[in-house]
Write a protein that binds this DNA or RNA. Structure first.
Length: 416
RNA sequence: GCGGGCGUAGCUCAGCCCGGUGAGAGCACCAGGUUGUGGCCCUGGGGGUCGUGGGUUCAAAUCCCAUCGCCCGCCCCA
């Protein structure tokens, strides 16, 4: 451990990476707004109990991945492992549900899970997500899915697959769960140790196992689709048809169950083969009982989250724009050069000058590397007669220009 | 939490197996070649706790142990 090293699994975002983050953030904002979703921001720290109740005590997130600590008053707090719970908490706390019957919300920010770092998996990571509260109908499922798909489109992310499934209504989910428990109990001794554990706590999760021992049994396990009632089935079919219509690869996967306990009906995951073991870069579903479990009213809801670091691995990386437009170089008239820089900045251009009193040659090289289009060379003799040299770095043209004429010349030179 | 690979200059890496011969290359950075002009080229220069700690040895980047970190897989998820 060293004080000069970031905490394990937590990363700096250096200046060269930042333009891509900003691009993502821009797309999040623009597309969410277009869909009528409003941004909400909640604290990074919540009472630990919030996640025990929402995400589920038996989930891995709560029992082995959460950063928890006691504050000075002894309250048990947690760094948020996901953002949905906090959003729901805020909704109930502020009585927003009394003011409006539908809320379309989006969020963006860091979350924390104590896991072994891997490609696309970090201990501090970022999520963008959107939630639609107040509608039990499948068009709201489609609304959030379309929002997600539009964001991916805008980012130029292709070659992914939407995996779709339903867990049915609460009653269906209960019946299916029981059927799975019965089935897997009958083959219990053939299952991997992990899955034997899951049999007690959460038999649905066995379906997610990648363990080779489990595969043959998972393949023969009861399929949720056989348990659906008419309403659950039509809900599922509506969502499937609507997503299939907008194009993109939709794959129905009856074994997709997802890690959080609160889902009912629709569940989905965005997966890409380009990500390695962490092939999912987004996921979500419907959670009609979650708000209620917080002591709120019975309120249907559907939402999803993207892993921002994983989107960054997938998105297009167009070459970055130049950092500055104009570089002011000088052979010794440092103060004069500073004056010219202020003039240019005042006119709205991005302009810098050398801060190390380096040679003119080096300054021009610097200008070139910064991607500047123009260089203003403040030479002693020209400055004496009230002018400077304006050099177009792309065209290698250069001319002398009286100081009062500089701004018009700059404007003209930049526009071609 | 489990299994495997790797840590040498800012970056990518050679050297390690067979311990000793001034710790190296390319890129990047700085200066000069061009007494005031970038992109190409040439010359020179600065920069390294050889991840860290301990051990073996006359001698360790090189062998051994521990530890930290990164990567890959499992688990799990975004």
């Amino acid at each position: 451990m060293s004080e000069l090293q970031a905490v394990r699994g937590m990363h700096d975002v250096l200046p060269e990476e930042l333009p891509y983050w900003r691009r993502l953030e821009e797309v999040f904002y623009v597309v969410s707004s277009r869909f009528g979703y409003e941004e909400i921001r909640t604290p990074i720290v919540e009472y630990a109990q919030l996640y025990v109740r929402s995400v589920g005590e038996a989930s891995d997130i709560v029992h082995k991945e959460m950063y928890t600590f006691a504050d000075r008053s002894g309250d048990q707090l947690a760094l948020r492992p996901e953002l949905t719970a906090g959003v729901v908490r805020a909704l109930v706390q502020h009585g927003l549900l009394q003011r409006r019957s539908v809320w379309r919300l989006w969020y963006y920010g860091p979350a924390f899970r104590y896991e072994r770092p891997q490609k696309g998996r970090y201990r501090q990571f970022h999520q963008y997500g959107a939630e639609c509260f107040g509608s039990p109908y499948p068009e709201s499922d489609v609304d959030v899915l379309l929002l997600a798909i539009t964001i991916l489109q805008q980012l130029g992310i292709t070659g992914y697959e939407v995996q779709l499934n339903t867990l049915g209504s609460t009653e269906v989910r209960q019946r299916y769960r029981q059927a799975l428990r019965d089935y897997f109990s009958s083959v219990r001794l053939h299952l991997s140790p992990d899955s034997q554990q899951r049999l007690e706590r959460n038999p649905l999760r066995i379906l997610d196992s990648k363990h080779p021992d489990d595969q043959p049994w998972i393949e023969q396990a009861p399929v949720v689709w056989d348990f659906l009632d008419a309403e659950s089935r039509s809900h599922f079919e509506y969502v499937h048809a609507a997503i299939a219509e907008v194009g993109g690869t939709v794959v129905l996967n009856p074994r997709l169950v997802r890690g959080l306990d609160y889902y009912t009906h629709t569940v989905f995951e965005f997966v890409s083969p380009r990500l390695g073991a962490q092939n999912a870069f987004g996921g979500g579903g419907r959670y009609d009982k979650l708000v209620e479990s917080f002591g709120g009213p019975s309120l249907p809801a559907v939402g999803f989250a993207f892993g921002v670091e994983r989107l960054l691995l997938l998105m297009e990386r167009p070459p970055q724009e130049a950092m500055v437009q104009i570089y002011v170089a000088t052979t010794g008239a440092v103060q004069a050069a500073q004056q010219v820089v202020r003039l240019l900045r005042g006119a709205g251009y991005s302009a810098v000058a050398d801060l190390q009193r380096r040679s003119l040659k080096t300054q021009l090289r610097d200008a070139d590397r910064l991607g500047a289009t123009l260089a203003v060379i403040v030479g002693d003799s020209e400055w004496q007669r009230g002018s400077v040299l304006l050099r177009h770095l792309r065209e290698s043209a250069q001319w002398e220009c009286a100081l009062p004429d500089l701004l018009p010349h700059v404007r003209q030179a930049l526009s071609r």
